[in-house]
């Protein structure tokens, strides 16, 4: 067994990809973080207080995890979905009755979306009550507010895509709110829907926003958000000296 592991890891090809040995020493454990594209957002060492579950409840990370699940299931659903009337609805039925695992993927996408909205909201609440929005993290809080709005918009644009009664009327109510904006409200609604009512143009626009524009914005936003957490010295922790100050 050990020989096999050694044979697998101790050669030029493996070492050209993974540039460190088995993480059994602190040096190699540092290199795991340091030389890995996906892990390099972490520092090599973390404060014990910062990684306790009850400090953050991992809400930010779990929100990102939901986003990952949504991208994965969403891309798969795109293989069977056509943003047209009435194909969109028929494709939903196909996903439900014909496509193998179609129901499951649609369910997972739907429930992950609801969960993500809830997790992002809770993440904001915890961040506020911990006082982590204060300088020097004020701009990251603002970014977080925008990410919350983007999450809501993603969820909302996705809501129209099944083209069922639920979708149609929820979106009717929502876009008429945009109409209430003084002066430019009417125009905004027209541009958003690509017409005077919710019809095929609106479906295509929501589809493009949901599948391309908003996810790209989200990836960019999350990247900056996480990057700034690192630049500000990791997640907020109250100063250890005066413990009476905070929870």
């Amino acid at each position: 067994m050990a020989a096999l592991a050694k044979w697998l890891t101790d050669n030029r090809v493996y070492r050209s990809i993974i540039r460190h040995g088995f993480p059994d020493s602190n040096r190699n454990r540092s290199l795991v973080i340091f030389t890995n594209f996906f892990l390099h957002i972490h520092p090599v060492k973390a404060r014990l207080r910062a990684i306790r579950f009850t400090r953050t409840f991992f809400l930010g990370g779990l929100s990102a995890a939901c986003f990952f699940l949504l991208v994965a299931t969403g891309v798969l659903l795109m293989f069977y979905y056509r943003p047209a009337v009435p194909h969109a609805y028929n494709d939903m039925k196909d996903l439900g009755f014909v496509v193998s695992s179609g129901v499951f993927l649609r369910n997972l996408h739907r429930w992950s979306a609801h969960t993500m909205v809830a997790l992002v909201f809770l993440h904001m609440v915890v961040t506020f009550f911990r006082g982590a929005y204060r300088p020097p993290r004020e701009f990251n809080w603002v970014l977080g507010v925008f990410l919350f709005v983007a999450t809501i918009l993603l969820s909302y644009t996705g809501y129209l895509l099944p083209w069922d009664q639920l979708a149609y009327w929820a979106v009717t109510v929502g876009t008429n709110m945009a109409q209430a904006v003084p002066v430019m409200g009417e125009k905004m609604r027209f541009l958003l829907l690509g017409g005077h009512g919710i019809n095929e143009n609106a479906l295509v626009r929501f589809y493009v926003l949901h599948c391309v524009v908003l996810p790209l914005a989200m990836v960019l936003g999350i990247s900056i958000h996480v990057w700034r957490v690192r630049k500000d010295g990791g997640i907020y922790l109250p100063p250890p000296a005066n413990k009476g100050d905070e929870r």
């Binding site: 993480p23 602190n26 454990r29 540092s30 795991v32 973080i33 892990l39 972490h42 520092p43 090599v44 060492k45 973390a46 404060r47 014990l48 207080r49 990684i51 579950f53 991992f58 250890p240 000296a241």
Partner: peptide, 15 residues
């Protein structure tokens, strides 16, 4: 500060 630190791998990554 002299507060306790741990290696990110495996402690945080595993969590």
């Amino acid at each position: 500060s002299d507060e306790p630190m741990v290696m990110t791998f495996p402690h945080l990554v595993l969590r």
